[in-house]
Design a protein around this nucleic acid. Sequence first.
DNA 1: TATGAATGAGAATTCATTCAT
DNA 2: CATGAATGAATTCTCATTCAT
Lengths: 205, 205, 205, 205
Amino acid sequence: MDLSKRQSEIINAAIKLIGEGGIQALTIKNLSIEIGVVESALYRHFKSKTDVLSALLDYIESIMDSNFNGVKDLKIDPFEKIEKLIDSQLKFFADTPSYAVVILSDGLYKNDKILYDKLFDIMKVSRSTFATIIEEGQKEGAIRNDVASDQIAFIILGSIRLNVNQWGLSGFSFDLQKKGKVIFHTLKTLIKNPSNNSQNLYNKK
Amino acid sequence: MDLSKRQSEIINAAIKLIGEGGIQALTIKNLSIEIGVVESALYRHFKSKTDVLSALLDYIESIMDSNFNGVKDLKIDPFEKIEKLIDSQLKFFADTPSYAVVILSDGLYKNDKILYDKLFDIMKVSRSTFATIIEEGQKEGAIRNDVASDQIAFIILGSIRLNVNQWGLSGFSFDLQKKGKVIFHTLKTLIKNPSNNSQNLYNKK
Amino acid sequence: MDLSKRQSEIINAAIKLIGEGGIQALTIKNLSIEIGVVESALYRHFKSKTDVLSALLDYIESIMDSNFNGVKDLKIDPFEKIEKLIDSQLKFFADTPSYAVVILSDGLYKNDKILYDKLFDIMKVSRSTFATIIEEGQKEGAIRNDVASDQIAFIILGSIRLNVNQWGLSGFSFDLQKKGKVIFHTLKTLIKNPSNNSQNLYNKK
Amino acid sequence: MDLSKRQSEIINAAIKLIGEGGIQALTIKNLSIEIGVVESALYRHFKSKTDVLSALLDYIESIMDSNFNGVKDLKIDPFEKIEKLIDSQLKFFADTPSYAVVILSDGLYKNDKILYDKLFDIMKVSRSTFATIIEEGQKEGAIRNDVASDQIAFIILGSIRLNVNQWGLSGFSFDLQKKGKVIFHTLKTLIKNPSNNSQNLYNKK
DNA sequence: TATGAATGAGAATTCATTCAT
DNA sequence: CATGAATGAATTCTCATTCAT
């Protein structure tokens, strides 16, 4: 799973290509043109196109993981955590729309169990990260307790994803993060504990 | 927009093919084999492959519309409406997974603005249908008023979509409608008006 | 060879199509669209596409013949005759560029002996018309006698044809008849009898 | 513009195919059969069919240019130059009729501006070559001065072209060069300076 | 006369992959 | 490590023509 220099180059080329022309622009030919070698040369570095996608998914997963970890253990309000989490994910996509394209291009991996599993994994990690934070919030009393934490996580994830989805359909034409803020506030209103008077254990000034 | 018998046949073949092998299985060749004619014969009925997909999307939209309309004006509780709406949509996909595949295969229509727009449209109608019902519910006092109706609609849609998405990724292996019920209950808990004591204006006998 | 009403309609449609999109636009499908029937309906009127082209060539030939005849027997100076002849032919093409396209699309008829022969015929008639007039001019002493009449005819024809040719290549963008005038004057200078002092037997004022 | 070995092979195959079956025989499939590879293999050497034709036209142009240059600067009588020029061009076509087919297949390149422009270019070079020689002849007093040099060039070109044309229509059945000689003599008679008594400045021994 | 449906042949091009050098 | 060449399977689409109704 450790990538050679050339392999990284290829993955970066893949990202660029997808960003420019969608998942369909990711062909061995385009890839080879992008990195300035001949098509067959790529097969020294990846044994197949599926392997390239697989590495790409690994790469995306690793970034997302580190995004998550950067937020998970902060000593802040659970809502702030959720907000930061959503924002960091959307920033991740906004900065490099290719990642969004890859994540949203499920249908394509139908035949490749490996790719499928990777995607599934990524989604599972997202969901459990949110679920954990929510559970904490519920324990603290900040988040309502009458719904299961992973149900809330599911709803958050669905909202984020639909946001990214529509952004993609629109040709990346609106401000993804800004829209994310709005969604977050809606979600916050819905899931915060209405009977909670012990506000702001964290940042009280 | 009225389909001939043969055109319907082709659309049905398309649905079957997509159900069996994903959007990638939808080729002119497969289509022609499926309906038992030669490839060029298809071009008498649709002028291009894009046209087939376009008609397919129209068809899906029309069914979804009629699903919506079958529920929208019922004299029932807004939550029951939402529940029925979600359920009818999920039933629609569960009965014919191809529809889910088509709906979720954005990214693949990259080149065809027409198809993109149709997809967008379908999503818009869904969202506004939910939004209308929610607004009604808010006026009645059944649904909380501190969040915008179309924000709630967005969240519902995102949740449904993620559900369908994961179902697709899983190879249609779990019970889509059952999972939908769970999601509905979560959503209901989140959005119902906590201070509402005028329950069941509708079906009390 | 007498065309029915429908047949004439088809020929006219063919002319229109060729004018708009070149000889490649002349397809059974386009033809049928143009006259507002279904493709197979055309086969009631012409037994094949070759037959359409054949009739088209006949039509062109008949117009050219009548152009020729309108000039041939006028009681005017041979040069005026030649000038009128050239001009009427160029006007014929300028008015309906399709005719030029058809005439210049030899290569296409390679497989159809019938079409080939027709084209050959058209050219032969042109050439002999010119040759006859030149011979007359030579007898009168207006045209030099040291070159064979059909050689001169050949050169005139070649010049006209090259003119039409370049006009076609240029996308019909220059004034064909105007350029024809220039060519005529060059030709006249070259072929007139230098020792002829009995000028203007015809139109002397 | 430098052709690889395989590219030359392909161009030669194209020439052969055109010679045998006209421009319509030039298909990727025929080409690939001719050189003994699979169709897709051609695309390693030319990126499209238009590219093949383009290279073919370049090739033709280069031969014609070298033909021209072989004659242009000879220290001979302008008429001899013209004669040699005509003859070398006709020999070029007579040896390889495909070249004639390609040159005469305008109308077929309707869609490809590039090819059109190349054809136009070839004609322009021919014409200006003739024009230059004629101008020289006019200065020397060998060629009559009462007509513009490029007008004469136009007429020569038209005559040559018509000759080649009819030869093509006839199925390459007559002796192209022989007919060319006749035409040349006619042209010579027409364009030589009648009042020139300083004959043969060049080869008098 | 016209329609609707289908045929069969062919055309250009794309793509992932393999292999000898 | 990289190149050049080739493969084979697919893909969308076009076109002239035929035939039953």
